[in-house]
Amino acid sequence: MLATVIQLIINGLLLGGIYALISIGLTLIFGVLEIINFAHGEFLMLGMYASYWLFQLFGVDPYLSLLMVIPTFFLVGLAVQRIIIQPIINAPPLNQIFATVGLSLVLQNVALFFWKADYRTVRTAYSTLCLKTGGLMISLPRLVAFVLAIAMISALLMFLKRTYTGKAIRALAQEKRAAMLMGINVYRMYQIAFGIGIACVGAAGAILIPIYYAFPTVGALFVLIAFVVVILGGYNSLVGALIGGLIIGLVEAFSGFFLSPHLKEAVYFVIFILILLFRPTGLFGRG
Protein backbone atom coordinates (compact mmCIF):
# COMPACT_ATOMS: atom_id res chain seq x y z
CA MET A 1 0.00 0.00 0.00
CA LEU A 2 2.73 2.41 0.96
CA ALA A 3 4.59 1.63 -2.23
CA THR A 4 1.41 2.30 -4.20
CA VAL A 5 0.93 5.64 -2.49
CA ILE A 6 4.52 6.65 -3.17
CA GLN A 7 4.14 5.53 -6.76
CA LEU A 8 0.96 7.62 -7.09
CA ILE A 9 2.71 10.64 -5.58
CA ILE A 10 5.54 10.28 -8.08
CA ASN A 11 3.14 9.89 -11.00
CA GLY A 12 1.10 12.83 -9.84
CA LEU A 13 4.07 15.15 -9.38
CA LEU A 14 5.59 14.23 -12.73
CA LEU A 15 2.30 14.99 -14.45
CA GLY A 16 1.83 18.13 -12.36
CA GLY A 17 5.09 19.62 -13.61
CA ILE A 18 3.75 19.73 -17.15
CA TYR A 19 0.41 21.07 -16.00
CA ALA A 20 2.32 23.80 -14.20
CA LEU A 21 4.23 24.74 -17.35
CA ILE A 22 1.00 24.96 -19.37
CA SER A 23 -0.73 26.96 -16.66
CA ILE A 24 2.05 29.39 -15.92
CA GLY A 25 1.70 30.88 -19.41
CA LEU A 26 -2.02 31.30 -18.90
CA THR A 27 -1.43 32.93 -15.51
CA LEU A 28 1.17 35.32 -16.89
CA ILE A 29 -1.17 36.41 -19.68
CA PHE A 30 -4.10 36.86 -17.35
CA GLY A 31 -2.04 38.60 -14.69
CA VAL A 32 -0.64 41.17 -17.11
CA LEU A 33 -3.32 41.62 -19.80
CA GLU A 34 -6.35 40.71 -17.68
CA ILE A 35 -7.57 38.52 -20.51
CA ILE A 36 -8.21 34.82 -20.30
CA ASN A 37 -6.69 33.20 -23.34
CA PHE A 38 -9.35 30.67 -24.32
CA ALA A 39 -7.10 29.59 -27.21
CA HIS A 40 -4.31 28.56 -24.84
CA GLY A 41 -4.96 24.85 -25.33
CA GLU A 42 -4.73 25.24 -29.08
CA PHE A 43 -1.22 26.60 -28.75
CA LEU A 44 -0.34 23.53 -26.72
CA MET A 45 -1.76 21.43 -29.55
CA LEU A 46 0.32 23.37 -32.08
CA GLY A 47 3.41 22.88 -29.92
CA MET A 48 2.81 19.14 -29.95
CA TYR A 49 2.38 19.08 -33.71
CA ALA A 50 5.43 21.29 -34.25
CA SER A 51 7.60 18.91 -32.30
CA TYR A 52 5.95 15.93 -33.97
CA TRP A 53 6.65 17.17 -37.49
CA LEU A 54 10.19 18.22 -36.67
CA PHE A 55 10.73 14.64 -35.56
CA GLN A 56 8.93 13.02 -38.49
CA LEU A 57 10.36 15.18 -41.23
CA PHE A 58 13.83 16.04 -39.99
CA GLY A 59 14.42 13.51 -37.24
CA VAL A 60 14.80 16.24 -34.62
CA ASP A 61 14.54 14.84 -31.11
CA PRO A 62 11.48 16.30 -29.30
CA TYR A 63 13.62 17.70 -26.47
CA LEU A 64 16.01 19.26 -28.96
CA SER A 65 13.05 20.74 -30.82
CA LEU A 66 12.52 23.03 -27.82
CA LEU A 67 15.32 25.18 -29.18
CA MET A 68 13.19 25.89 -32.24
CA VAL A 69 9.71 25.72 -30.71
CA ILE A 70 10.33 28.25 -27.93
CA PRO A 71 11.55 31.16 -30.09
CA THR A 72 9.03 30.42 -32.85
CA PHE A 73 6.12 30.36 -30.43
CA PHE A 74 7.35 33.51 -28.77
CA LEU A 75 7.19 35.27 -32.15
CA VAL A 76 3.78 33.74 -32.89
CA GLY A 77 2.63 35.07 -29.52
CA LEU A 78 3.85 38.57 -30.38
CA ALA A 79 1.97 38.46 -33.68
CA VAL A 80 -1.26 37.14 -32.18
CA GLN A 81 -1.11 39.78 -29.48
CA ARG A 82 -0.60 42.51 -32.05
CA ILE A 83 -3.36 41.35 -34.42
CA ILE A 84 -6.07 39.99 -32.13
CA ILE A 85 -5.48 40.90 -28.51
CA GLN A 86 -4.34 44.51 -28.79
CA PRO A 87 -7.53 45.75 -30.51
CA ILE A 88 -9.74 44.35 -27.72
CA ILE A 89 -7.50 45.13 -24.75
CA ASN A 90 -9.97 47.76 -23.46
CA ALA A 91 -13.13 46.25 -24.97
CA PRO A 92 -15.98 44.82 -22.90
CA PRO A 93 -15.40 41.27 -21.56
CA LEU A 94 -17.69 39.75 -24.15
CA ASN A 95 -15.49 40.89 -27.03
CA GLN A 96 -12.39 39.73 -25.19
CA ILE A 97 -13.81 36.30 -24.49
CA PHE A 98 -15.06 35.66 -27.99
CA ALA A 99 -11.93 36.95 -29.71
CA THR A 100 -9.87 34.16 -28.17
CA VAL A 101 -12.74 31.65 -28.33
CA GLY A 102 -12.94 32.35 -32.08
CA LEU A 103 -9.18 31.96 -32.40
CA SER A 104 -9.37 28.61 -30.65
CA LEU A 105 -12.09 27.47 -33.06
CA VAL A 106 -9.92 28.49 -36.04
CA LEU A 107 -6.73 26.85 -34.79
CA GLN A 108 -8.46 23.63 -33.84
CA ASN A 109 -10.00 23.27 -37.26
CA VAL A 110 -6.88 24.35 -39.12
CA ALA A 111 -5.21 21.39 -37.43
CA LEU A 112 -8.12 19.15 -38.35
CA PHE A 113 -7.95 20.35 -41.94
CA PHE A 114 -4.25 19.78 -42.40
CA TRP A 115 -3.55 16.82 -40.15
CA LYS A 116 -6.93 15.04 -39.87
CA ALA A 117 -8.28 13.68 -36.63
CA ASP A 118 -5.58 10.98 -36.37
CA TYR A 119 -3.81 10.41 -33.06
CA ARG A 120 -0.10 10.95 -33.56
CA THR A 121 2.80 10.44 -31.23
CA VAL A 122 6.55 10.20 -31.39
CA ARG A 123 8.25 6.86 -30.81
CA THR A 124 11.78 7.48 -29.64
CA ALA A 125 14.34 5.03 -28.30
CA TYR A 126 13.60 6.21 -24.79
CA SER A 127 9.80 6.35 -25.08
CA THR A 128 9.23 3.25 -23.03
CA LEU A 129 12.30 3.35 -20.78
CA CYS A 130 11.64 3.08 -17.10
CA LEU A 131 13.73 3.55 -14.00
CA LYS A 132 13.01 0.83 -11.48
CA THR A 133 14.04 1.17 -7.87
CA GLY A 134 12.63 -0.54 -4.81
CA GLY A 135 9.39 -1.56 -6.46
CA LEU A 136 8.85 1.91 -7.89
CA MET A 137 8.65 2.65 -11.60
CA ILE A 138 9.52 6.00 -13.05
CA SER A 139 8.93 6.53 -16.74
CA LEU A 140 12.02 8.20 -18.17
CA PRO A 141 10.29 10.58 -20.62
CA ARG A 142 7.94 11.67 -17.85
CA LEU A 143 10.87 12.35 -15.58
CA VAL A 144 12.64 14.31 -18.29
CA ALA A 145 9.45 16.24 -19.02
CA PHE A 146 9.11 17.09 -15.34
CA VAL A 147 12.72 18.22 -15.00
CA LEU A 148 12.51 20.35 -18.16
CA ALA A 149 9.21 21.88 -17.08
CA ILE A 150 10.55 22.80 -13.66
CA ALA A 151 13.74 24.15 -15.22
CA MET A 152 11.78 26.36 -17.61
CA ILE A 153 9.48 27.62 -14.88
CA SER A 154 12.51 28.48 -12.72
CA ALA A 155 14.13 30.27 -15.63
CA LEU A 156 10.94 32.26 -16.19
CA LEU A 157 10.68 33.20 -12.52
CA MET A 158 14.34 34.28 -12.53
CA PHE A 159 13.77 36.32 -15.65
CA LEU A 160 10.82 38.09 -14.07
CA LYS A 161 12.75 38.76 -10.86
CA ARG A 162 16.11 39.81 -12.22
CA THR A 163 15.77 41.58 -15.57
CA TYR A 164 14.36 45.03 -16.25
CA THR A 165 11.77 43.61 -18.67
CA GLY A 166 10.74 41.04 -16.09
CA LYS A 167 10.38 43.65 -13.37
CA ALA A 168 8.41 45.89 -15.73
CA ILE A 169 6.03 43.03 -16.52
CA ARG A 170 5.50 42.33 -12.84
CA ALA A 171 4.97 46.01 -12.12
CA LEU A 172 2.35 46.11 -14.84
CA ALA A 173 0.57 43.12 -13.39
CA GLN A 174 0.38 44.88 -10.03
CA GLU A 175 -0.63 48.39 -10.95
CA LYS A 176 -1.01 49.37 -14.57
CA ARG A 177 -1.38 53.11 -14.15
CA ALA A 178 1.60 53.48 -11.86
CA ALA A 179 3.69 51.34 -14.20
CA MET A 180 2.78 53.59 -17.10
CA LEU A 181 3.73 56.66 -15.07
CA MET A 182 7.12 55.08 -14.39
CA GLY A 183 7.76 55.11 -18.11
CA ILE A 184 7.09 51.45 -18.82
CA ASN A 185 6.07 50.83 -22.40
CA VAL A 186 2.82 49.07 -21.67
CA TYR A 187 2.07 47.86 -25.19
CA ARG A 188 5.51 46.38 -25.58
CA MET A 189 5.24 44.60 -22.24
CA TYR A 190 1.80 43.25 -23.18
CA GLN A 191 3.34 41.79 -26.30
CA ILE A 192 6.29 40.28 -24.49
CA ALA A 193 4.12 38.81 -21.74
CA PHE A 194 1.80 37.27 -24.28
CA GLY A 195 4.77 35.99 -26.28
CA ILE A 196 6.30 34.37 -23.19
CA GLY A 197 2.95 32.81 -22.28
CA ILE A 198 2.63 31.24 -25.72
CA ALA A 199 6.29 30.14 -25.72
CA CYS A 200 5.71 28.34 -22.39
CA VAL A 201 2.69 26.46 -23.61
CA GLY A 202 4.40 25.64 -26.93
CA ALA A 203 7.34 24.23 -25.00
CA ALA A 204 4.92 22.20 -22.88
CA GLY A 205 3.54 20.74 -26.10
CA ALA A 206 7.00 19.74 -27.27
CA ILE A 207 7.91 17.92 -24.06
CA LEU A 208 4.47 16.30 -23.97
CA ILE A 209 4.68 14.66 -27.40
CA PRO A 210 6.89 11.69 -26.36
CA ILE A 211 4.32 10.72 -23.71
CA TYR A 212 0.99 11.79 -25.17
CA TYR A 213 -0.90 11.80 -28.46
CA ALA A 214 -1.38 14.88 -30.58
CA PHE A 215 -4.78 15.40 -32.17
CA PRO A 216 -6.69 18.56 -33.12
CA THR A 217 -8.81 18.77 -29.96
CA VAL A 218 -6.09 17.71 -27.51
CA GLY A 219 -5.80 21.34 -26.39
CA ALA A 220 -9.35 21.45 -25.06
CA LEU A 221 -8.49 18.59 -22.73
CA PHE A 222 -5.44 20.28 -21.28
CA VAL A 223 -6.70 23.84 -21.25
CA LEU A 224 -9.53 22.88 -18.93
CA ILE A 225 -6.95 21.43 -16.55
CA ALA A 226 -4.96 24.63 -16.92
CA PHE A 227 -8.01 26.71 -16.01
CA VAL A 228 -8.42 24.62 -12.87
CA VAL A 229 -4.75 25.09 -12.01
CA VAL A 230 -4.88 28.83 -12.57
CA ILE A 231 -7.96 29.25 -10.39
CA LEU A 232 -6.50 26.96 -7.75
CA GLY A 233 -3.17 28.74 -7.64
CA GLY A 234 -4.66 32.22 -7.63
CA TYR A 235 -5.04 33.68 -11.07
CA ASN A 236 -2.26 36.20 -10.67
CA SER A 237 0.36 34.16 -8.86
CA LEU A 238 3.01 32.36 -10.92
CA VAL A 239 4.27 30.36 -7.95
CA GLY A 240 0.64 29.55 -7.27
CA ALA A 241 0.36 28.15 -10.79
CA LEU A 242 3.38 25.93 -10.14
CA ILE A 243 2.01 24.57 -6.88
CA GLY A 244 -1.52 24.37 -8.31
CA GLY A 245 -0.18 22.30 -11.22
CA LEU A 246 1.47 19.85 -8.85
CA ILE A 247 -1.67 19.61 -6.73
CA ILE A 248 -3.87 18.87 -9.73
CA GLY A 249 -1.37 16.27 -10.90
CA LEU A 250 -1.65 14.56 -7.51
CA VAL A 251 -5.43 14.84 -7.48
CA GLU A 252 -5.53 13.24 -10.90
CA ALA A 253 -3.21 10.39 -9.92
CA PHE A 254 -5.08 9.60 -6.71
CA SER A 255 -8.64 9.98 -7.99
CA GLY A 256 -7.72 7.96 -11.05
CA PHE A 257 -6.52 5.16 -8.81
CA PHE A 258 -9.05 5.23 -6.00
CA LEU A 259 -12.17 6.30 -7.91
CA SER A 260 -12.01 5.72 -11.62
CA PRO A 261 -9.78 7.16 -14.34
CA HIS A 262 -12.96 8.38 -16.02
CA LEU A 263 -14.03 10.38 -13.01
CA LYS A 264 -10.73 12.18 -12.43
CA GLU A 265 -11.92 15.01 -14.68
CA ALA A 266 -15.18 15.31 -12.80
CA VAL A 267 -13.16 15.55 -9.57
CA TYR A 268 -11.05 18.46 -10.65
CA PHE A 269 -13.96 20.32 -12.17
CA VAL A 270 -15.74 20.05 -8.88
CA ILE A 271 -12.60 21.44 -7.21
CA PHE A 272 -12.60 24.18 -9.82
CA ILE A 273 -16.16 25.26 -9.14
CA LEU A 274 -15.69 25.04 -5.38
CA ILE A 275 -12.57 27.20 -5.50
CA LEU A 276 -14.27 29.75 -7.75
CA LEU A 277 -17.15 29.99 -5.36
CA PHE A 278 -15.49 29.88 -1.97
CA ARG A 279 -12.00 31.20 -2.51
CA PRO A 280 -12.03 33.10 -5.80
CA THR A 281 -8.55 34.47 -5.15
CA GLY A 282 -7.18 30.91 -5.13
CA LEU A 283 -4.81 29.38 -2.64
CA PHE A 284 -1.95 31.78 -3.30
CA GLY A 285 -3.56 34.79 -4.96
CA ARG A 286 -3.60 38.25 -3.55
CA GLY A 287 -7.04 39.65 -2.90
Partner: peptide
Protein backbone atom coordinates in the same frame (compact mmCIF):
# COMPACT_ATOMS: atom_id res chain seq x y z
CA UNK B 1 -12.29 27.96 -39.76
CA UNK B 2 -14.55 30.41 -41.57
CA UNK B 3 -16.86 30.62 -38.55
CA UNK B 4 -14.04 31.30 -36.12
CA UNK B 5 -12.51 33.92 -38.38
CA UNK B 6 -15.87 35.65 -38.77
CA UNK B 7 -16.28 35.62 -34.98
CA UNK B 8 -12.87 37.15 -34.32
Amino acid sequence: IVYGTVLV
